[in-house]
């Protein structure tokens, strides 16, 4: 179990990785990556049962994870590499021709840790339902985790999956929403009528947990509650209240950094704000 201090150090390094990756590639999605950094760091380093050394795509005997909001590859790849799935140096190949680190997750380049392609929004939760059902059929006692975006949850398929998971009693499924309130065109409240996600997931029959997505105590508590949901016959949704661009003052709390790349002087400023870590840059 990593301490909050250690998790914070990893998170800081992951945010450095995110910014350096998108700046090197001159493309990518830093905003949502930075809002879900603390969630994914805690998940991969303290919560999920997984072993990069014995990873296989079928996920037998291990927990599985689907990044439904597939554009958040910078945080995903950074966390996977920092957790030991592939060399940290490979982060420098993000979005380049021939790279295993495709713009959105792909299973076609042999990148360890990725179970399914994603990026066309709204689809990952359905795949996660299939994984969870497969584990139940196989009497594999491990869990399936899935991260969605709140903007992504405007897709109707998310709600189809929400119905399916309850009907098939997928209590080995834990979905998470990076509830940062922002999407490409602006605040979610100004783009759609999505409304109260907690009430909606409760109405579908899910165990719903609301947590602070940048507070490791709150994150850890939410994960423990979610794990306790197994046996309840209900899937669990953790709504993590987060901030897009969290960790860098000029990026925080605005939709403008959803898919924008900092200029070199902005990167320098951002890295100074984050500070260096003992883990070192790629």
């Amino acid at each position: 179990m990593y301490s909050n201090e250690k998790l914070q150090e990893i998170s800081t390094q992951v945010r450095r990785d995110i910014l350096r990756m998108v700046c090197k590639a001159k493309s990518g999605h830093p905003g949502g990556s930075m809002s879900s950094t603390d969630i994914l760091t805690a998940l991969y380093f303290n919560v999920m049962k997984h072993d990069p050394a014995t990873w296989t795509r079928d996920g037998k005997g291990q927990d599985m994870f689907i990044l439904s909001a597939g554009h958040m590859t910078p945080v995903y790849y950074s966390v996977l590499s920092r957790a030991g799935y592939f060399p940290v140096e490979e982060l420098g190949t993000f979005r380049t021709f021939g790279a295993r680190l495709q713009g959105h997750p792909s299973i076609r380049k042999g990148l360890p840790g990725v179970f399914q392609a994603s990026g066309s929004l709204g689809q990952g939760l359905s795949a996660a339902c299939g994984l969870a059902l497969g584990k139940k059929m196989d009497k594999d006692d491990n869990r399936v985790w899935c991260l969605c975006g709140d903007g992504e949850s405007e897709e109707g398929q998310i709600w189809e999956a929400g119905m399916f998971a309850v009907f098939h009693k997928l209590d080995n499924l834990v979905a998470m929403t990076d509830w940062n309130g922002k999407q490409i065109d602006g605040p979610v409240s100004e783009v759609s009528g999505e409304g109260d996600l907690a009430a909606k997931w409760e109405a579908w029959g899910w165990n719903v947990i609301v947590a602070e997505g940048h507070d490791f105590d709150s994150i850890q508590q939410a994960f423990e509650l979610a794990k306790a949901g197994k046996g309840s016959g209900k899937p669990t949704m953790i709504l993590f209240k987060t901030e897009m661009g969290h960790g860098v003052d000029f990026m925080a709390g605005t939709h403008k950094w959803h898919g924008s790349v900092p200029k070199p002087e902005q990167l320098e400023d951002a890295l100074k704000q984050l500070g260096e870590t003992s883990l070192g840059d790629f």
């Binding site: 179970f115 990952g124 795949a127 339902c129």
Partner: peptide, 8 residues
């Protein structure tokens, strides 16, 4: 999507 997950 669920079928894809089952196949995996």
């Amino acid at each position: 999507g669920a079928a894809a997950g089952l196949a995996i």
